[in-house]
Design a protein around this nucleic acid. Structure first.
Length: 479
RNA sequence: CGGGGCGUAGCUCAGCUUGGUAGAGCGCUCGGUUUGGGUCCGAGAGGUCGUCGGUUCGAAUCCGGCCGCCCCGACCA
């Protein structure tokens, strides 16, 4: 509800994001450094993300469960790479009930170790497999530099954990969940993503293979928007998750884990937002349409509000999420700007003239201002709005995809590469070592975002080492 | 943890140089006016000036310690 204007994206993208999150009522800062308060408007968006993911998980046989937020310190230490990866960012509880604890307790940074502990008890036989569990919770990682939704000390997410009898099955599940994430991102959030595999350097601590969906924000930087890990037998060995196979031999399980977090809210903001504020994808938006009544006299007010009430019922019955802005002390003009700031996909304006004409003014957020406004009949309004919502959803995806593609450069030498990663992604043949990758990172701040699953095939010349390469990588600066 | 900036009303900030006990705009409350792209007028409420100490007759203002926040770098979904 701020009257002062939002800074433009081109002027200061970072500031644009920070102030938009606050002004649009998505979230606020928490009292402890690096924490966030997610406000109802932001949380509703998150709930819609949750619903879209949760139904997809369940369709693949996954069930939800609840696990503790406290982990014995010793658990973390059982998997060497896992500790190494997480040790610097752990929040540790040393006191409880006024007494110093014998063993410090860690606040979960992720639950692989707890899951490992539980699964080792749950699994006896191949008949107990697979185990397909998902947790909706929050986790804590003591981050040095934080930013609301993108990187906070505590964040909300889902973490899926599965255990399988064979390596092939675990790999298939890892890839299946990556597909679920891709489908969700593209079809629900209208966020185009590149599914791919992480390099060894960027891999999750304790995983054999890490897959990711990478999105490009409007400043050209990459945002890792979801990950799926094939944990191999690393955690199964560390936690003795063993099963008796049908040939009566004892074997270690193969496990996976996969997650999408509230960071995705940030992805939506930075993918679709414009200089007027948020632009929310219709399928996830808290409100899909907002009705702004317009009137002068009390007589008009009564007539208009009666019509509004009827329209609301009609739209709601058609399954459209409607909000009526009945704030009496604000002018319509103010409300137009306010709802544009908050990114509501469509807006219905109705005044005495419309009531008389059996019409409404229908505005679309992806084309802001008067240009996106049309007068339509009240007859069949639900279908009209639904069609417009579908059109906006498709337009947002097309627009974001074009932006991503326009800012992705296929380059063949280091000079071009350095220019490319200033403003977007570099798509390159890569045959470098870990050391080469590290050096590129130090020299350009760009990292391998992923090796896309969709590879051109054949071979090419590595832009950095000049060696023959058999796969392409996407490089970019990242959040 | 290194570099830079900053803490004064809910928000954005002025006042500090040259000490005399706090202001503006926005927001909020009430009344009226207005309402098809951020109405206008009037009356109000609201601040131990981040914190602790020092100098002084007197500190938002000068000096020192501490705490916190933001931005930039090293870690990460």
């Amino acid at each position: 509800m701020a009257k002062d204007k939002l800074i433009s994206r081109s002027e200061d993208f970072n500031e644009w994001y920070n102030s938009l999150v606050l002004k649009a009522d998505m979230a606020d800062y928490g009292p402890v450094r690096g924490t966030m308060i997610v406000k109802p408007y932001g949380w509703t968006l998150w709930e819609h993300i949750q619903q879209a993911l949760d139904s997809r998980f369940k369709a693949t046989g996954v069930q939800n469960a609840g696990f503790p937020m406290f982990i014995p310190m010793s658990f973390l230490q059982k998997e060497a790479k896992h500790v190494e990866g997480f040790a610097p960012e752990l929040a540790v509880v040393t006191h409880g009930g006024g007494q110093e604890l014998a063993e410090p307790i860690v606040v979960r940074p992720t639950s692989e170790t707890l899951i490992g502990h539980a699964y080792s008890n749950w699994v006896q036989s191949y008949r107990d497999l697979p185990i397909l569990i998902n947790l909706w919770n929050s986790v804590v990682r003591w981050e040095m530099r934080t930013k609301i939704f993108l990187r906070t000390s505590e964040f909300y997410w889902q973490e899926g954990h599965t255990a399988h009898a064979t390596a092939e099955e675990a790999e298939a599940r890892t890839r299946q969940m990556l597909d679920v994430y891709t489908d969700f991102a593209v079809n629900e959030a209208a966020v185009p993503v590149i599914p791919g595999e992480k390099s060894e350097l960027e891999r999750f601590a304790g995983a054999d293979r890490t897959y990711t969906i990478e999105a490009m924000m409007q400043d050209g930087k990459a945002l890792q928007s979801g990950t799926s890990h094939n944990l191999g037998q690393n955690f199964a060995r560390a936690f003795d998750i063993e099963y008796l196979a049908d040939d009566n031999t004892l074997k270690h399980c193969w496990t996976t884990s996969w997650g999408v977090s509230t960071r995705f809210v940030g992805a939506i903001i930075m993918t679709h937002g414009d200089d007027l504020g948020l632009v929310l994808p219709p399928r996830l938006a808290p409100y899909q349409t907002v009705i702004v009544p317009i009137y002068r006299k009390d007589k008009e007010r009564e007539v208009v509000l009666t019509a509004v009430s009827t329209l609301k019922q009609t739209l709601t019955a058609a399954g459209i999420r409607v909000h009526v802005d009945n704030r009496d002390h604000l002018t319509p003009g103010f409300k137009f700007n306010d709802w544009e700031l908050r990114g509501v996909p469509t807006r219905i304006e109705i005044g005495p003239r419309d009531v008389a004409n059996n019409s409404v003014a229908l505005a679309r957020r992806d084309i802001p201002g008067r240009e996106g406004k049309q007068f339509v009949s009240q007859d069949g309004l639900a279908q009209t709005v639904q069609q417009l919502l579908d059109e906006i959803q498709a337009n947002l995806l097309a627009r974001a995809t074009k932006f991503r593609d326009d800012n992705t450069y296929e380059v063949t030498n280091y000079d071009e590469f350095q220019t490319a990663v200033q403003t977007g992604f570099a798509k390159v043949w890569w045959a470098g070592s870990n050391e080469d990758e590290q050096r590129v990172k130090e020299e350009t701040k760009a990292t391998i975002r992923c090796f896309p699953l969709d590879q051109p095939g054949g071979s090419g010349t590595c832009f950095y080492t000049g060696k023959s390469a058999d796969r392409v990588a996407i490089f970019g600066r990242s959040y």
